[in-house]
């Protein structure tokens, strides 16, 4: 094993910026598994996750000389991957993707069911058996990204805040809003004895 494999992230990035031809590949191998999980969870789609991951690493490749060392390299890489996923999600919201792969058809059709009605209809969402990703697709992107990092991938709120470059309170409130929106479509997945509409028929006056 070459010594370069044992260098810390920051030094690998510096060496890469100075022209080292191996350093960046080491960095990629070190972080790609984790970042793949982030990209998959963010996009819910294998092809998009693959594209986002490649775009992100190539962006980092080119931007290495602008890394100021104010954050951890991992945080910086996460942020770039999250941005790449965000771009794709945003574009998908604008123009829904055309199904091209058999293995994406399920998610895509669920997405359409979830989206076509405009306001979420709890009963039809249940009928459509929205999976987690389709449910996540109904959230605003900022809530989806916060929930993905904190609830799905287990990042601490502070880490998620650094990755998303927002305050910790912002991450908490985005997660809270997202969970509230997901409750009708997800809570019953784990807890089938409680009907999903237990919270929807109440007075619901917002006390704020």
């Amino acid at each position: 094993m070459e010594a370069v494999h044992e260098l810390p992230d920051k030094e690998l990035l510096e060496r890469h910026a100075q022209g080292d031809e191996q350093a960046f590949a080491v960095l990629v191998k070190r972080h790609r598994e984790r970042l793949w999980a982030v990209a998959m969870r963010m996009t819910g789609d294998r092809e998009e996750a693959s594209d986002a991951l490649q775009d992100a690493f190539l962006s980092a490749f080119r931007a290495a000389d602008r890394f100021r060392g104010e954050s951890q390299v991992t945080t910086w890489l996460h942020r770039i991957v999250v941005n790449a996923c965000h771009d794709r999600l945003r574009r998908r919201k604008v123009r829904p993707a055309t199904p091209t792969e058999d293995d994406t058809l399920d998610v895509l059709s669920n997405e359409r069911l979830g989206r076509s009605g405009g306001a979420p209809d709890h009963a039809s969402q249940t009928e459509a058996r929205l999976d987690v990703h389709a449910a996540l697709d109904t959230l605003p992107l900022d809530q989806r990204m916060a929930l993905t990092l904190v609830d799905m991938l287990g990042y601490r709120v502070e880490e998620a805040a650094r990755i998303l470059d927002v305050a910790t309170g912002t991450v908490k409130s985005r997660c809270a809003r997202g969970r509230a929106k997901l409750l009708p479509s997800l809570a019953h997945l784990r807890n089938p004895h409680h009907p999903p509409d237990v919270t929807s028929g109440r007075g619901g006056a917002n006390p704020s």
Binding site: W36, A37, M152, L186, L189, H194
Partner: peptide
């Protein structure tokens, strides 16, 4: 149930590359 939502999200297995 709100914490069930968090758990439902956490239950989704991590994909490997």
């Amino acid at each position: 149930e709100l914490s069930e939502v968090s758990r439902a999200l956490a239950d989704v297995p991590l994909p490997s590359l």
